[in-house]
Design a protein around this nucleic acid. Sequence first.
DNA 1: GGAAGATGATTAACATGTTAAGTTTATCAG
DNA 2: CTGATAAACTTAACATGTTAATCATCTTCC
Lengths: 178, 178
Amino acid sequence: MAGKKSPNGPGSIAAETSSVRRTPMREFSRSLPMSLLRAREAVMRQFRPSLRNHGLTEQQWRILRALTAVDAIEVTELARVAFLLGPSLSRILRDLEARHLIERRAAKADLRRGMVSISAKGLKLIEAVAPTSESIYAAITKLYGARKLAELQDMLSALEDSLSGLEVAGAGDAEADE
Amino acid sequence: MAGKKSPNGPGSIAAETSSVRRTPMREFSRSLPMSLLRAREAVMRQFRPSLRNHGLTEQQWRILRALTAVDAIEVTELARVAFLLGPSLSRILRDLEARHLIERRAAKADLRRGMVSISAKGLKLIEAVAPTSESIYAAITKLYGARKLAELQDMLSALEDSLSGLEVAGAGDAEADE
DNA sequence: GGAAGATGATTAACATGTTAAGTTTATCAG
DNA sequence: CTGATAAACTTAACATGTTAATCATCTTCC
């Protein structure tokens, strides 16, 4: 049930012919992006069912969660805090507003800016989800170790910092072969 | 250009009213899922432009990359290796096949199973992208430190292992309020 | 003060993530 | 051999990621 089974039994063609093409590359499964992706998925797999039972996606939860910390916030700031791109945020806010979980108004001084805040209904929903969410987080912390978890987050943060100054290379690499 | 600016200047309404609702929760930006998401995005941001210049998305690249290591592989195995869900993989394979970057055939012993392999054109594309990709990876390794990078991957792997035995809780938590 | 350019937000278009349902082929009980 | 069950994909439907284009408002400069 828990682990993925390895179908190496009958007719596993791929396993028999594993020394054919050897491009000199890092092993695929240990590349940094894959490691980060798998780790994150392992974590989110724990949270998704609970969120889903409350009718929320991960991103919708992130937004409501961020809104509980402030009275109101500009859309752009919210995108930064919840780590969502503008277009995604626009769509989600439209949906959350239709469900009366948030409220919107235009900023007085600049009509381009939209101010967003969580509604009473939204707060109530948050309070309904939070206990389970915190419980899961506590279980993860206990399993992995609080100290190790803090260390991991420090290393992730350091990784972000390391890359923040990197100019995106290959911007004139080659053209798509169309 | 490089850093995000913090518009704390005129009319920053959110910043002034920061002590209103205080749900007793972890600080949002330091939650584990967010840390992992941001770190991964910081890494992928380096690769995406180069891939894009070759007409590939991140996932398409993962698939072709995985295919270079084997002669042929079953779809299910490919999904596991490239860490994609079945439906995503189906769509991408359809597209890659239409572009003649991969080849497909049915397994002789079991017509339900599809065997996938990379084409000559696909290999050529891989070889065109690989140098830039490796160069970027090397730059990241140098910036962050090879030792630290290995340590980070070990910790990520350990995190996966820790969570692999966790039963997904909250599966009967509550119903969506519709 | 009005046109040009900058900024905040949304919309458009396409690709993927995610869960559920459908299709085809195997396997198995009777 | 046939109907039921399972397995391997594939499709469907909806939500988000990603980049480009559009819209509305603001700022600037002449």
